[in-house]
Design a protein around this nucleic acid. Structure first.
Lengths: 154, 154
DNA sequence: AGAGAAAGCTATCCATCATAGCAATTGGAT
DNA sequence: ATCCAATTGCTATGATGGATAGCTTTCTCT
């Protein structure tokens, strides 16, 4: 598994990764490339709905909940508190979320009716995306991807 | 509720993903999270050798080759031509690569002796990293990860 | 009541990635 | 042999994501 024999010096036109790139066997490298590629694709699809991936993710996370604060969302999605600010500001400006005071310190982030409608769009996009993604993986490997990735996050 | 209220920004213990996060079943989402997590780890390890991931990747790609141009490396690693400039500049300043004219337009990027030495370090780091990564994946899923990721890049 | 933690925010900074444009050179087709 | 399109390497510039430090207000715990 640690033998990358390349030797092939093709005129680099298109990029049949595994064919030319001696790094194409390294799981870490593959992980990055695959994630980049997939996220670019998802980003493009969500762009058609004027949403960034992070924004769509927040909508999906909130869903029906009316108890999530900015800090909690950040913890769940691994987004710094400071970086939640512009993110939520955009969603609020777009009228997708609003803030409901919990006490004088905290506020719950809740979907507006419009936000809920848009969430349905997001759901359609992401479900299609996930389905397309899985479809690209040969059937015998498919059921192993999610558990493997989950193990990496533990 | 909320048991993990650690003040730490992003420590190890963070989140039992699948427990709380309703997104934890989505392959695309997992892919991004896993890649981010892994790349952060690799970045830290390479940092100890004063290299970025992209720089280390370039070293690994060049290896023995003496025919690769900046544009070709960029194509293989999916890095824009424009972004290769500062990357190679750093490697050159660090004395790890040098440029060998091919003609009046193109130049081959070649490792210096020092660059080759550093590449050995990089290889040690990445092999350890890849091994650690694979080890975290349960044995029955392990052999499926690389083929699955490769399929995503096709 | 007081101390410490947490929430929300501002202000920066850094790294990655993308785009446009430019001058020089190359290579292919006529 | 010449001309034109493509390529190379580069500059300059944004957009984005992510990280840190610090501040004020408020909550919570003892």
């Amino acid at each position: 598994m640690t033998d990358f024999v390349t030797g092939s010096t093709h005129s680099a036109d298109a990029l049949p990764v595994s064919a030319v790139d001696p790094l194409a066997d390294l799981p870490g490298y593959l992980l990055r490339r695959a994630a980049n590629s997939m996220m670019a694709e998802l980003g493009t699809r969500l762009n058609a709905h004027e949403l960034r991936i992070s924004e769509a993710t927040v909508l999906l996370l909130i869903n029906d909940r009316t108890d999530l604060t900015s800090a909690e969302i950040g913890k769940l999605l691994e987004i710094q508190r400071a970086n939640m600010v512009p993110l939520l500001a955009r969603l609020e400006t777009a009228g997708l979320i609003h803030r409901v005071p919990i006490n004088r310190k905290s506020q719950a982030i809740v979907l507006t009716p419009h936000g809920r409608t848009r969430l349905d769009e997001v759901r359609a996009v992401t479900q299609k995306f996930e389905a397309d993604l899985l479809e690209r993986i040969p059937a015998q490997h498919r059921p192993h991807l999610v558990p493997a990735l989950q193990a990496l996050l533990g």
